[in-house]
C-alpha cells in the first residue's frame, strides 16, 4: 500500500517533530518536516500533502501566549491553503503546541474568523507539568477518521504549562459536548484497587490542568481537524511506557490519521 505524505510544519521553537515523524512512519505514512519559511517561500506546498500534523514544542518561545504567534502566521499566510485542505477532507492533527496553534488560529473548534469561544490557557496549578495520563477516545466524537479508535483508552505523557481548556460560557461548553469532544482525561487505572479507568471528574492529577469537563482534545465541526494536549507520539512503542497496565499505545491514533489520509 502507498504511504500517504504527511506534512509536519516546523517553526522556530518547535520540538517533538522528530517523534511525530517516527510515529507517522510506524503508522504507514511518509513524514516530511518543513520549516514554515519553506512553506512561505513555496519550496514546500501544503497542497502536495495528504495530511498535516502540527507537532508540539514552543513555537516562537510561546511568547505572548502559547501558540499565538504561529497561529497568526497560519491565519495571515496559509488560511486559504488550510481551508482548501480541510474541505478536501484531509486530516489535520495538532498535538500540544500544535493544538494550541489550531485553537488560537480559530480552526478548532472553528470556524475560522468567528470570535473564539474556546481557548487553552495556564494550567490551574500555575506551572508547567510533565506526567503520564490516561485518555478516553470519546465514542460520541464526530471525527470520521478518529472513529476507527473510538471508545478505546490511551496512555501517554503530558508536558505543558498552558493546557487548561477553557470556554467563554455555558453555551460554548454545550456546543463542544455535541460531538466535538475527542479526548477526555480519565482517572488512572494503575492502582491495584481501581484497575478500570474512571472519569477524572476534574480531580488533579488525573485531570492535570483543570480543563473544563476533563477535555483533553477536540475536533472541528467537519471532523477532519483534531487536536489534543497529551503526547501519543511518545507512546508508539511498548518500551516507552512506564510500569503499570499493559496497552494504551498511541500508535493506533496515528494509524487512524494515516488511514484517513488515504
Amino acid at each position: 500500500m502507498s504511504r500517504p505524505p504527511v506534512l509536519i510544519p516546523h517553526a522556530s521553537g518547535t520540538n517533538r517533530d522528530d517523534e511525530a515523524a517516527q510515529a507517522i512512519r510506524l503508522a504507514g505514512g511518509e513524514p516530511t518536516i518543513a520549516h514554515v519559511n519553506e512553506l512561505r517561500s513555496g519550496t514546500v506546498r501544503i497542497a502536495d500533502y495528504a495530511a498535516i500534523l502540527l507537532p508540539g514544542g514552543f513555537s516562537y518561545g510561546d511568547a505572548l501566549g502559547a501558540g499565538g504567534r504561529l497561529a497568526l502566521e497560519l491565519r495571515t499566510w496559509f488560511a486559504e491553503e488550510l481551508a482548501t485542505a480541510a474541505s478536501a477532507g484531509k486530516p489535520m492533527l495538532g498535538i500540544c503546541n500544535g493544538f494550541q496553534v489550531l485553537v488560537k488560529a480559530g480552526l478548532l473548534p472553528g470556524p475560522m474568523g468567528e470570535t473564539r469561544s474556546v481557548t487553552l490557557t495556564e494550567n490551574a496549578e500555575g506551572r508547567f507539568e510533565c506526567r503520564w495520563v490516561t485518555l478516553s477516545v470519546e465514542p460520541a466524537c464526530r471525527s470520521g477518521w478518529l472513529g476507527a479508535i473510538a471508545g478505546t483508552t490511551m496512555r501517554c505523557p503530558i508536558a505543558h504549562g498552558e493546557g487548561r481548556l477553557a470556554v467563554a460560557d455555558g453555551a460554548s461548553a454545550e456546543r463542544l459536548e455535541n460531538g466535538l469532544v475527542a479526548f477526555r482525561y480519565l482517572a488512572d487505572g494503575a492502582r491495584p484497587t481501581s484497575r478500570k479507568p474512571v472519569a477524572a471528574a476534574g480531580a488533579y492529577p488525573a485531570n492535570p490542568n483543570g480543563s473544563v469537563n476533563d477535555i483533553a482534545g477536540i475536533c472541528d465541526e467537519g471532523g477532519t481537524i483534531v487536536g489534543l494536549m497529551p503526547h501519543p507520539e511518545d507512546h508508539v512503542l511498548d518500551w516507552q511506557r512506564p510500569s503499570g497496565p499493559e496497552g494504551g499505545l498511541g500508535l493506533p491514533l496515528f494509524e487512524a490519521f494515516v488511514a484517513g489520509a488515504r
Binding site: R16, R127, F128, R131, R191, H231, L237, Q240, P242, S243
Partner: peptide, 22 residues
C-alpha cells in the same frame, strides 16, 4: 522534577519517578 519535561524525544525508558503511582 515534574516541572521538567522528561519525556520529550520519546526515548525515556527509566524515568525519575517510577511505580504504579509514579
Amino acid at each position: 522534577v515534574r516541572r521538567y519535561d522528561h519525556e520529550v524525544r520519546g526515548g525515556t525508558v527509566v524515568r525519575p519517578y517510577v511505580g504504579p503511582e509514579a
